[in-house]
C-alpha cells in the first residue's frame, strides 16, 4: 500500500528522508498533496506491505512526524 507521512516542518521532512534512504523502506520526498494541506511543504510518499512496520520504524528511529496517511487513489486516509 502507498503511504504519505507529513511533518511539522520541511527540515524534519528532509531529515526523515535521509533516515529512510538508509533503510529498506522505499519512499521519496514530494510536495504535500493539496488533499492533505493547502500549505507548502514536503512529505514522504512510499510503499509498504504493513503499515505497522512503518510505525515501528518511525518509533525506533525517533522520527519526528505529524501524521501518516494511506493513499487510496486520489484520497488520503489518516492512519
Amino acid at each position: 500500500m502507498k503511504f504519505v507521512i507529513t511533518f511539522p516542518s520541511s527540515h524534519l521532512a528532509m531529515h526523515a528522508n535521509k533516515t529512510f534512504m538508509n533503510s529498506k523502506i522505499i519512499c521519496e520526498i514530494i510536495p504535500t498533496p493539496r488533499q492533505i494541506s493547502s500549505e507548502c511543504g514536503f512529505c514522504l510518499l512510499g510503499e509498504i506491505d504493513d503499515i505497522s512496520t512503518l510505525k515501528e520504524f518511525n518509533s525506533l528511529n525517533k522520527i519526528n512526524f505529524d501524521k501518516i496517511y494511506i493513499k487510496k487513489g486520489e484520497l488520503y486516509e489518516e492512519s
Binding site: 520541511s10 528532509m14 528522508n17 521519496e28 520526498i29 514530494i30 510536495p31 514536503f42
Partner: peptide
Amino acid sequence: DKLGALLMKAFIYT
C-alpha cells in the same frame, strides 16, 4: 543547495 535539490525534485514530481 540541499533545499534547492529537493525543491527541484518536488517540482519535477509535480
